[in-house]
């Protein structure tokens, strides 16, 4: 139960950063916070009380193993998160090169 609360909080903080912070890099950080929140949500959905990691070793019987599917999804999501953040940061470098500022309200040549 506590994990649901934690993931909801993480997502909330991420979105809050996005909505309030003007600096573009802070926004991208917000995005990765949301991503981690979502990953935590996925894992906690797959978690079953009192069961161990889904590695079938001689000592572990299949009956008390946690659901592996969300963990596979999280694995994929983490990589997506990394690649999006990498691309976003490199684009921010280029934006800074042109606009000399990272304030989102200044970076708005294309409007109306």
């Amino acid at each position: 139960m506590m994990f649901y609360f934690a993931s909801a909080a993480l997502i909330a903080i991420g979105i809050y950063m996005l909505m309030v912070k003007k600096n573009l890099i802070k926004m991208i950080l917000g995005l990765s916070v949301i991503d981690s929140g979502v990953n935590l949500l996925l894992i906690s959905i797959g978690y079953i009380n009192g069961k161990t990691a889904p590695i079938i070793q001689p000592g572990v019987s299949p009956s008390n193993v946690v659901d592996p599917l969300p963990q596979a999804l999280v694995l994929t999501n983490i990589v997506i998160g990394v690649s999006v953040t990498a691309l976003a940061l490199s684009v921010v470098i280029r934006v800074y090169k042109h606009y000399k500022t990272l304030n989102s309200s200044e970076v708005r040549d294309l409007k109306w």
Partner: peptide, 8 residues
Amino acid sequence: EATIKYMI
């Protein structure tokens, strides 16, 4: 500029 907006 367009990319950063679209990405976020």
